[in-house]
């Protein structure tokens, strides 16, 4: 498997300005589920999927976690490797990571703890048919 990147971009930093697809600007810590849903609705070609966390494991790469999701209506299995501080947006809950303490330390972004069963927002390409 490819070596995962340890670099997390600054858009997760508290105070980062995020532009929604509607043109509205919001701070990353103020985003709500509806902001993502509405943005996907007005975006051409992108759709929001519900991605349920089914397992959280240690990665073979030190300093990473291996997350397993089932994605969308098809319940497709997708796995990704991320640093434990990587935030995911959980429906109805908000930003969540495997290590809320590290996320707070590195990004000052308040987070819940990401757990098996959490339903995260992800995107994929809209089907053409």
């Amino acid at each position: 498997p490819p070596v995962p990147s340890a670099h997390l971009p600054s858009h997760f930093m508290k105070g980062a300005i995020i532009q929604l697809a509607t043109g509205e600007l919001k701070r990353v810590e103020d985003l709500q589920t509806q902001d993502f849903v509405r943005s996907a609705e007005v975006s051409g070609g992108l759709k929001i999927d519900s991605s349920t966390v089914v397992d959280i494991q240690e990665s073979q790469w030190p300093g990473f976690v291996l997350l397993h999701f089932v994605v969308g209506e098809q319940q497709s299995k997708v796995s990704i490797e991320v640093p434990p501080e990587h935030p995911f947006f959980v429906y109805g809950q908000g930003w969540s990571s495997c290590s809320p303490g590290r996320t707070a330390q590195l990004f000052s972004l308040p987070c819940h703890r990401l757990q098996v069963g959490d339903v995260c927002i992800s995107i994929s390409l809209q089907s053409l048919n």
């Binding site: 971009p9 600054s10 858009h11 997760f12 980062a16 300005i17 995020i18 532009q19 929604l20 697809a21 600007l25 990353v28 985003l31 902001d35 993502f36 943005s39 975006s43 992108l46 929001i48 999927d49 991605s51 999701f69 994605v71 969308g72 098809q74 497709s76 299995k77 997708v78 990704i80 995911f88 947006f89 995260c120 927002i121 992800s122 995107i123 994929s124 390409l125």
Partner: peptide, 25 residues
């Protein structure tokens, strides 16, 4: 005088993972 500062603006979709299952051929 206040110097103008550029503020980075990030698109919403950069915050959420792109989780697309690999398509079978």
């Amino acid at each position: 005088n206040v110097e103008p500062r550029s503020v980075a603006v990030f698109p919403w979709h950069s915050l959420v993972p792109f989780l697309a299952p690999s398509q079978p051929d």
